[in-house]
Design a protein around this nucleic acid. Structure first.
Length: 114
DNA sequence: TGGCTGACAAACT
DNA sequence: AAGTTTGCCAGCC
């Protein structure tokens, strides 16, 4: 049997994605595209990684670019937002303008909304 | 080798 | 706000 049954580069990519999600502060959210822009690859790849390794990470803090709630468990994610105080519309859409957090800018402290 | 699927993004209606 | 279409990247059959 071949020694490397898994590609280390793939595992490393997964770790980077999960790391970004774990760095997301409470009450904030980020998008797949933002993570993809940091870790590389495409936004779809990030989603795929979350689907297979997004168990031990706060996946509910990862939303889509238009602010729609995360896929699956959107109802549960909504409760998380209420508990964390994440700004979201009554219609169930997250207010990106307020809640968006950039994984490439963890130093950023509560950016002003212009 | 080729085609399909997917926890996506952006633009248009 | 919601639905539809196109494009992009990676994995699987």
């Amino acid at each position: 049997m071949q020694d490397d049954r898994v590609d280390p580069a793939k595992e490393e990519y997964v770790e980077r994605v999960l790391s970004c999600v774990e760095q997301i502060p409470p009450g904030r959210v980020t998008t797949y595209g933002a993570i993809a822009a940091v870790v590389g690859g495409g936004p779809r790849q990030v989603g795929s990684v979350m689907a297979h390794h997004g168990g031990p990470v706060p996946w509910w803090r990862v939303v889509r670019a238009d602010g729609s709630l995360p896929p699956s468990h959107d109802g549960e994610a909504r409760e998380r937002y209420a508990a964390e105080g994440t700004p979201c519309s009554s219609t169930g859409r997250v207010q990106m303008r307020e809640a968006f957090w950039d994984p490439a800018r963890p130093e950023d402290e509560v950016e002003r909304i212009s």
